[in-house]
Amino acid sequence: MMGDQPDITARARRFPPWLKKRIPSQGEAAEVSRLLAELKLATVCSRAHCPNLPECYARGTATFLILGDSCTRSCRFCAIEKAAPGPLRDDEPEAVAEASARLGLRHVVITSVTRDDLPDGGAAHFARTIRAVRARLPQAIIEVLTPDFRGAEAAIDAVLAARPDLFNHNVETVPRLYATVRPEADYRRSLGVLAYAKRRATAGGMTVYTKSGLMVGLGETADEVRTCLADLRAAGCDILTMGQYLAPSSAHLPVVRFVEPAEFAAWEAEARALGFAAVAAGPFVRSSYQAETVFSTRKA
């Protein structure tokens, strides 16, 4: 039985109505949390304060965060701790493989903090993790969401040599906003990472889908988004995700605008028309949100 209709506008007006999530009343969330704690694994779901966490954990999925849980960059949209990172955990690749196997994942997403302090940016550790998961789950689709490795082609080569099925690197925002949103990154360099990965995989006879993501609501204009989508296609990017930027705290960049679901639907149609093989756009879409479903919708 429901009580009287609450005065939503007065009490919960911080978010528009479409930014409401329902927590599943049943599911595997507690088991996922226990497993991650047991194997001492971090997830970007938790470290980035992702609002999809209850839904994804309840479905028995999570996106692994490797290379430690503190980042050498200070992007102003991201909740992950900015601090001098510690040494790499040698057993982390095996732990990710173990968790993936115990969760029975068919689509494993592995991401990381940025490790500008490491000579290879952590590429070898990415490769070891891909291989460890592949050894345990030969049938699983493996998606990596990598940092830009400062554009180092050798690092991208090392990751690709481990044969991920998807190579994801997010441009995150339009070039004009890089200085405020991700000051230590470079838009052209990120596009270059995607273009190089695609070119290299194709030349090597590998089927690797490239993927990238864009946050909206940071003050970008429609024309800037349009140019960014065209830039991604020109870089050979196959799969696009677009979601609402949400500020992790009052210390992070504020949301400039809440983008309505209909506008996301229009972007999705426009992106498909540009030739992306798969597109996910919506308020709660994140880079790895429903990655398995998004990948399954791809056009040949």
């Binding site: 429901m2 409401k20 927590i23 304060h49 209850p54």
Partner: peptide, 25 residues
């Protein structure tokens, strides 16, 4: 004092990123 069915929303919570409805188990 009110009765609920399993899955009925109990309470609405706010984090920095979204609004969440918590259902009854």
């Amino acid at each position: 004092g009110e009765e609920v069915e399993e899955g009925d929303d109990l309470v609405q919570m706010l984090t920095d990123k979204a609004t969440f409805d918590v259902p009854s188990p």
